[in-house]
């Protein structure tokens, strides 16, 4: 009888202990929820804006950057889609100096290792504005550009049409003189530049710029 009473009392005490444990856990979860709500209500917006700032430096996967077909809208005189960064969209040909080079979209150092870069803030052939192309001045690239004269013909064979330009003038400018290559859309001017003097040793603090005007175009 006494043993049964002792067992009953022990069982009660253990039950009480478990109740205390459960109480502590419930209070902890309640405190956690309260703190979370408190933070969310008072500084939730600030935290969201910081997180958005961090997410602003993300690059989305290739799904959004898949290359779309490039075509020219002859009515609007604009490309429907721009070529994807780093892709070849034209061939620059100057028979006078035996030059034929691929033209890439963009003009980073990576791109300039392989061919001619297109300054992406400038226009495309046919759009009636400034087109800026640049390349290194070493042999096989723009080394022979300074040999061109007034009247020299420059051909841009793009993936949507062929364009012919006639050289009007050349100019030697400082390496930071971007004012001499203005972006405008009043007339179609092709500007090609490279480091100058082309065969000097060391740092080249000048640029050789060629200005050519559109004389003929044909679309696909």
């Amino acid at each position: 009888m006494l043993q049964k009473k002792l067992q009953k009392q022990t069982h009660k005490k253990v039950k009480k202990a478990w109740k205390e444990i459960a109480e502590q856990l419930v209070i902890s979860f309640f405190f956690a929820s309260f703190i979370y709500l408190f933070v969310y209500l008072f500084i939730g917006n600030q935290i969201n804006s910081y997180l958005s700032l961090v997410n602003a430096i993300t690059v989305k996967p290739s799904g959004e950057y898949e290359s779309k077909e490039v075509s020219f809208n002859t009515v609007k005189k604009r490309l429907n889609n721009r070529p994807s960064w780093g892709t070849i969209w034209a061939s620059l040909e100057i028979p006078e100096i035996n030059m034929k080079l691929p033209v890439y979209q963009g003009d980073t150092l990576d791109i300039l290792r392989s061919g001619v870069g297109h300054f992406s803030a400038s226009y495309f052939p046919g759009e009636g504005g400034s087109i800026i192309l640049d390349a290194h001045c070493d042999w096989g690239f723009f080394y022979r550009i300074p040999e061109l004269k007034e009247g020299s013909l420059i051909y841009l064979k793009t993936i949507y049409g062929d364009y012919t330009y006639k050289l009007e003038r050349t100019k030697i400018i400082g390496e930071d003189s971007m004012d001499d290559m203005p972006i405008q859309n009043d007339e179609e001017i092709l500007m090609m530049y490279t480091c100058y003097p082309v065969n000097a040793i060391g740092h080249k603090s000048h640029r050789y710029v060629v200005y050519a005007r559109l004389v003929e175009e044909s679309h696909e």
Partner: peptide
């Protein structure tokens, strides 16, 4: 290397 390329060195 990219910088050296047009330098002639």
């Amino acid at each position: 290397e990219d910088y050296l390329r047009p330098s002639g060195l």
